[in-house]
Computed example of a mutant assay.
Amino acid sequence: MNQIKLFSPATIANLCCGFDVMGLCLDNIGDEVEIHKSETPGVRIVSIAGADLPLEAEKNVAGVAALALLREWPTDFGFEISITKKIKAGSGIGSSAASAAAAVFGINELLGRPYEGLDLIRFAMQGEKLASGSAHADNVAPALLGAFTLIRSYDPLDVIRIDSPEDLYAVVIHPDIELRTADARSVLKQNVSLPNAIEQWGNLGGLVAGLYTKDYGLIGRSLQDKVIEPLRGILIPGFDKLKTVAQQAGALGSGISGSGPSVFALCKGAASAQQTADMMSAVYGQISLKHDVWISSINPKGIKILETN
Rank of each mutant, 00 (worst) to 15 (best):
A66F: 03
I162F: 00
L130F: 14
A89R: 14
F79D: 06
T149M: 15
D158S: 10
P74Q: 05
R161A: 07
F105D: 04
S134Q: 13
M125Q: 05
I160N: 07
A98E: 03
G127C: 11
A103T: 06
L157P: 01
S91T: 11
F148D: 10
L70A: 08
V159H: 09
L157T: 04
A131C: 06
D158C: 09
G106I: 05
F148I: 11
D176F: 11
I151S: 11
S153W: 01
A66M: 03
I121A: 11
I173A: 01
M125L: 01
S96P: 09
D119E: 13
D183H: 08
W73L: 15
V104K: 04
R185T: 04
G117T: 02
A89C: 13
T84R: 10
L110D: 01
L69W: 14
S91E: 08
R113H: 08
S95W: 13
L120R: 07
A135F: 01
A102F: 05
W73Q: 15
I93L: 11
N108Q: 11
G127I: 12
E178A: 12
D155I: 12
L145C: 12
L157R: 01
I107S: 04
I83T: 02
F148A: 04
I107V: 07
I87R: 04
I151T: 15
S186K: 13
I162A: 00
R185S: 02
S164I: 08
G112T: 02
G90I: 14
G127W: 08
A182W: 00
F148Q: 08
L120W: 06
S153G: 04
G146R: 03
A147N: 14
I160K: 14
A68V: 01
M125R: 02
L67D: 15
A68C: 07
N139V: 01
P74C: 05
D183A: 05
V171E: 02
I87G: 07
D176P: 01
D163N: 09
P74N: 06
A66C: 03
L145N: 10
